[in-house]
Design a protein around this nucleic acid. Sequence first.
RNA 1: GGUCUCGUGGCCGAGUGGCUAGGCAGAGCUCUGCAAAAGCUUGUACAGCGGUUCGAAUCCGCUCGAGACCUCCA
Length: 501
Amino acid sequence: MKLLEKFPVHITNSLGGKKVLFTPIVPGYIGMYVCGPTVYNDVHLGNVRTFMSFDVIARYFRYLGFKVRYVRNITDVGHLENDADEGEDKIAKKARLEQLEPMEVVKHYTEGFHEVMRQFNILPPSIEPSATGHIIEQVEITKNLINKGLAYETNGSVYFDVTQYNKEHHYGALSGRVIEELMDSGRKLDSQDEKRNKVDFALWKKASSYHIMRWPSPWGDGFPGWHIECTVMSTKYLGETFDIHGGGMDLKFPHHECEIAQAVGANGKSPVNYWIHSNMLTVNGQKMSKSLGNSFLPRELFAGNHPLLEKGFGPMTVRFFMLQSHYSSTLDFSNEALSAAEKGFRKLSNALGILKKINHQGEGSVNTAIDAELLQLIDDCYVNMSDDFNTAKTLAVLFEMASRINDFKSGNITLKNVSSKTFEAFKAAYIGFMEEVLGLREEEEHNHELVKGIIHVLIELRKKARQDRNYPLSDKIRDDLKGLGVQLMDGKDGEMSYTIE
RNA sequence: GGUCUCGUGGCCGAGUGGCUAGGCAGAGCUCUGCAAAAGCUUGUACAGCGGUUCGAAUCCGCUCGAGACCUCCA
């Protein structure tokens, strides 16, 4: 745990709202739970941002040497359209609309979700449990809460008694809500006859005769409420109290507040030590969301097939773009910002390619000032990441490192003046922070081998033309290729490289 | 209506009491047959008003503006 001692991690804990030193329950191990997607629709880029934020957090902890158990669920039942009695499960609704079995809907969108995660280089969690796989546990905890007097059954449905809970505990600690205000504010819901108080929320819902997703329970056929699945799955795999719980800011209330109430009610202890909430992706200042209809889908982004986009952007460009802001800030999505990100990312990516080809050739007289600067840059990466996962500042350091890499290449810095130990550490750090921590790799070449072969033929022809000083021809080759999105770059000694848009 | 967050230069976006964020775009220069890439130099900023302080983008108050949550949402 040397790295952790040198660069102790500080996290802004949503519970309390302060930046605090992170201390795991068991030294060297971290249990982390993040609310996953409800698989009733395509994931959009706002969803992607959240999973990317926690991907980087898990990656960094692992880079520091922690063993991380990362649990991210799949919500495949129990997500109500609203909290009223007529609330319909999202999966069931989608299935009805599309004339599909609910599990067909779940399968389809789960696979789509995984594909998107793969495209953005978001690593899979250690465990990916689904709500339908934990019906028994959800029934058990509901029974437990009834026995403790914290839940009640009405007409085949079971509700959590928030007012009762609040007598001994504090409902609203995470979100800063005051129960009295919740009682008499907010919009009115249609039918709440079944609930004792409007703040109560469903643990189990009775399935109406036409409802297609249903399981037997002590209260008749029904299906679980939304909040209970996360309580069950997080504590089952991570323990009654675990280190980190993450999710989007919009889940803070009521979802995460309810999770706390359920866990405290059932187990008598606070479930989570550190709550982390990632902020929203906005479009023209407004939250990107399915209900607002301003979502960007990944495939629209890649193809540039969206009214607000002038062209397509690769997933790594988007990843870089998102990591340029802090996870806790809103980030505005626009064509212009993405174009800037594309060029910025190319710079880092080029440097990565260059660095991988450079090897230290034995030292001469070491310049201690340069050596010290390079070592400082490595430390800066750790310091910034340990400071509440500040990817924006870390990227600024990586840009500085990229400049040094170009210095190595151009000879502005002679490698002989750098100790081999420092160089190897620098190389490992740049590659490590780029690829392992931030998950930035070179944009996937979707080009055919044939295309690459043809480009190389043209490069050879152009080389010949240049040797013959036939510049009109060599320029035509270069310009025509540029028109197709292939940028040739002449290096020293006839060396040639190219980038493809 | 209640609770909360935010307002940084042409654009995006870090930063929380004094010390260059960074990227993109712009200007000049170097290198190059010309480009591109790379390097060097460079300008523009902290919504407004008032207060605390030796000193505030950073703390406090007010005003204006934007957004989020209070209903499903990452």
